[in-house]
Design a binder for these strands. Structure first.
Lengths: 189, 189
DNA sequence: CAGTGTGCCTTACTTCGTAAAGGCGACCGC
DNA sequence: GCGGTCGCCTTTACGAAGTAAGGCACACTG
C-alpha cells in the first residue's frame, strides 16, 4: 500500500516546482493532476488542499511564476538602462520555462505580476522617463513576442522534442538588436 | 433519431470555421470534439474523416488560419511601407480570433504560414531591404507580443467574458508607435 | 487518554479524445 | 433494374482527465 504520509509534506511551492518541471519537460498537455501527484508521490486529490481552485489555480500560479520578475536598479541609471535590465530579466524568466509560455502570454497579469509591472513603471519614471505607461506596454509586447518567436524557432514545441533548451545564440542577438531599436523609438520626442 | 445525413455536408472549411467560432466565443478550453460536432449537427467522430489526426490537426489548422496572411505590395513601395503593411495585416488577423492566440504564438509555423513568411521576406528584399531575415523575425516578435498584450489588456480572457472584441483604440495607438520605433531601428546602419 | 483538526486517501461521477466497426445512401457497370 | 462497392456518418466502447464527497490516520491540545 502507498505511504499514508508522503516522505516530505506537500506545499504550494513544491507543487508549482513539480508542475513547472513537467510542463517544461513534457509539455503543458501532459501536465495533469494525476501525473503531478505521481511526481510528488501523492494522490492527485491531495493537491486540492493546497490549491483550492484546482487546475485553474495551478495554471494561474504557473503564469504568475514566470511573469513576476523583479529588478533592482543599482545606482542611478538612465531610463534606457533600466528598461534594458527589465527586458532581459523578463526574457530570461520566460525562456527558463518554455512549457508555460502559452499561459504567460495569455493569462491577464495578477498578483505579483501586477506588482512587478507597477515597479517597472515607477523605476522608469524615477529614471527620467515621463509617461512610462506606453513604454512598459511596448517593452512587454516586444519581450513576450521575442520569446514566443525564439521558442518557436528553437523547435521546442516539436513532437519529438530533443530540444530541451529554448535559448539560442541567434535569438539573443536578434533580441538585443530589436531592443535597441525599440528603445531608440521610445525616447520622448 | 438524429438525421443520418447532415443538412449540409461536412468539409474542412466548415469545421475550422465552427471551431474558430467556439474558441472565440467560449475559449479554447471549451472547444471539444463533441461540442464542435454539435455545432455542425454531426457526431464528433465524423470530424475525423476530414481531419485524420483529430484534435492535433484541428489545433494546427486553427493556428495556421490566423497566421497565414498574405499582403500584396501595390506599387513599388519602400521597404518600411511593406513591413508596415505586413505587420498591420498580421495583427488584424490575430485580433480577429483571440481565442486561438495561444496556439498561434506557440505552434511552430507550418504550411501556408511558412509560405507567408517566405513571401514577406522576399517582398522586403525586393523593396530594398538587405538581409531581411532578422527584420522579419523582429516584426513577427513585435506583432505577436503586441497582440498578446492587447488581448490581455482588453480583458478578453476574463472568466465572465463580457468583452467580445479584443480591439481597443489604445492598443491601436500603442501598436503604431512601437512599430514606428522598431522600423527606425531596423534600418541598415 | 479522549478530543480535535489537518493533511492525505478512496471512491465515484462526468466529460474528454478516439479506436473499431457498422450502416446507409449514391453511384457504377452490366 | 440490380447487386457491388465506396464514401461519409453513426454507434459503441475504453482509457484517461478533473474534481466533489467523505473517510481515516496521525499530531497536537488539554
Amino acid at each position: 500500500m502507498p505511504a499514508k504520509r508522503p516522505p516530505v509534506p506537500l506545499s504550494r511551492e513544491r507543487i508549482i516546482d513539480a508542475a513547472l518541471h513537467i510542463a517544461d519537460s513534457q509539455g503543458l498537455r501532459r501536465l495533469t493532476m494525476r501525473r503531478l501527484g505521481d511526481a510528488l508521490e501523492v494522490e492527485a486529490m491531495a493537491i486540492y488542499h493546497h490549491l483550492p481552485r484546482g487546475k485553474e489555480a495551478l495554471m494561474d500560479a504557473l503564469a504568475e511564476h514566470v511573469t513576476s520578475v523583479r529588478v533592482d536598479p543599482g545606482g542611478l541609471p538612465a531610463w534606457p538602462d533600466v528598461a534594458r535590465a527589465w527586458a532581459r530579466a523578463a526574457r530570461a524568466a520566460l525562456l527558463e520555462h518554455p512549457g508555460v509560455l502559452a499561459l504567460a502570454l495569455t493569462k491577464p497579469p495578477k498578483g505579483a505580476s501586477l506588482i512587478a509591472l507597477r515597479d517597472q513603471s515607477e523605476q522608469l519614471a524615477e529614471a527620467g522617463l515621463p509617461d512610462p505607461g506606453p513604454a512598459v506596454r511596448a517593452l512587454r509586447a516586444y519581450v513576450h513576442g521575442s520569446v514566443a518567436v525564439e521558442v518557436q524557432q528553437s523547435g521546442w514545441a516539436d513532437p519529438d522534442a530533443t530540444v530541451r533548451d529554448a535559448r539560442t545564440a541567434e535569438g539573443e542577438v536578434d533580441f538585443e538588436h530589436g531592443l535597441d531599436a525599440l528603445l531608440i523609438g521610445l525616447s520622448p520626442k
